[in-house]
Amino acid sequence: METIRACVVVVAAMVAAPAWAERPADFLQRFEAEARGADAAFSASAERGRNWFESRHGRDWSCSTCHTKDPAVSGRHEVTGKSIDPMAPGINAERLRSARQVSKWFRRNCRDVLGRECSAAEKADVVAWLIAAAPSTGDGQ
């Protein structure tokens, strides 16, 4: 009976909340720690992240070209026109939840926007901005 009760609890938990592998704060911590390898005094800055997100970096696009300047709203792919869900984890609970996704999209989009991979410091700042840009609306933390 104990086993059954435990199973029921597990099932209830599965229904209540998706099994997120990671939390947004994990990525902030990870990139910040990595950036401190190059600069021991580094501390992520949401304000710096916002500026960086809105700026072009020697090419045609900024992050905000497709994602807009407001991470709380939907963006639109510059080439295909397809809608892109909001980037702020406080609005879109799927953001900053999977190391595979975070790594894939930073790799691709940084190459498109900067022509190179992003540094850990740049990633830490932009993650800080995405987290700060919109307050969390729910559970899942």
């Binding site: 009976m1 059954i4 199973c7 029921v8 099932v11 599965m14 229904v15």
Partner: peptide, 16 residues
């Protein structure tokens, strides 16, 4: 006991 097991199986199936 049987009923509880059946219920569990049902809820798992529903989730899946």
């Amino acid at each position: 006991m049987k009923a509880a097991t059946a219920l569990l199986a049902l809820s798992l199936a529903a989730v899946a």
